[in-house]
Design a protein around this nucleic acid. Structure first.
Lengths: 197, 197
DNA sequence: CGATAACCTGTCTAACCTGTCTAATACTTA
DNA sequence: TAAGTATTAGACAGGTTAGACAGGTTATCG
């Protein structure tokens, strides 16, 4: 979990860092200190709690860190819904974009951890989406999983263009989940492990 | 994400800071407070919104901080280029989005001051774009000028849905510039005034 | 038109929070 | 490891707050 320095916290809520230190000294804001010079470190959760407590608007960059959403970009509703069910079942937050406008909008508002992208859509160029994700600094670190029924050549091009992984259709749900789990670096709650509990 | 103190806001609109505090207390102007003494902090967006609401001219320093870009959303390249030339000629920064994906992406990355929107596009629903702009808090204050060759009914619906103004095609360049100038609250450098200098 | 009332704005006060500046030094990065 | 950047505490100057009061503007009515 990320922590903030006084300077970072000050910049985030638009005050001087000296003021942030005084809030900490007064016990208004929870922080811990480093042994050396006594630098303050503020946990993001504590900072958000402090902002909420005082009804100070929470800056966007803070909210991003908590999101672990998967964005499915596919123009075929049935296909998208299939992804949705499979991923939802293992506890992921899933959002669907059925067209180009929604794809663009949801990429930037959600800043998903993972994008599942269909390359072949009638009104949206999948490569363009991929290139945009890789060129936009706000989307740095977003993983892209390309799923396509096209030739291996096209899939190789997708990897070249920055896709983190590709899946050639058809593929099993388990193959999808394995790939998602690997890309997001998380253990998914599969039905098997769910039963163990 | 800059914020203003009561003193700064007061100086910007030429009143006493005591008056600004009273506006906040009455709920006319949105602001939050710092925990220490209860100092007010006003977000620039909220301040601009307040000024517009009360038809107070927006001071230059504030306009500099907010982007003065115009985003043209139109799928017909020739039409879009026509807008581009006309608006560029009077000194505006203009960006074109030819498809849904670009429309979504450029809306959120540029946060344009004005959007010129064609309602009738084959693969993008103009109304959906309009509704999104009005529902997204990050796009608060964005002006929308709908240009369409459709019936007056449709234009009325656009106004209902939140468009700031509509232009029925065909229209002259001057009509376009007048409307843009009014919506952006700026004086445009037309060729006539340029010649006078 | 003129008078009254209602209300908003500007001024003043004391208290105290916030921003700025400093030198020393720990932390971070190449 | 070394250079560069960021953070700390203290002191001081400046800004902001709430309350009370006076001056000015607008609205209503005779």
């Amino acid at each position: 979990m990320k922590t903030l320095t006084t300077g970072e916290a000050a910049a985030l809520c638009g005050v001087n860092f000296r003021t942030v230190i005084r809030w900490i000294e007064k016990g208004l804001l929870v922080a811990h200190r480093l042994p050396g010079r006594g630098d303050h470190r503020i946990q993001v959760d504590d900072f958000i709690h402090f902002l909420e407590e005082n009804k100070i608007p929470i800056p966007e960059p803070l909210l991003e860190t908590s999101r672990q959403t998967v964005l499915v970009i596919d123009d075929e509703p049935e296909v998208a819904r299939a992804y949705f069910r499979t991923l939802k079942r293992v506890g992921l937050e899933v959002v669907i974009a059925n067209d180009g406008f929604n794809a663009g909008v949801k990429l930037l508002t959600l800043k998903p951890a993972l994008v599942i992208l269909d390359l072949k859509m009638p009104n949206v160029d999948g490569f363009q989406v991929l290139q945009f994700i890789r060129s936009e600094s706000a989307l740095k670190g977003v993983k892209v999983l390309v799923a396509s029924g096209q030739s291996h050549e096209v899939l190789a091009q997708a990897l070249e263009a920055g896709a983190n992984a590709v899946l050639a259709k058809p593929f099993t749900n388990q193959a999808l989940l394995d790939e998602v789990s690997r890309l997001m670096r998380i253990k998914l709650v599969t039905s098997a492990t769910a039963l163990e509990e």
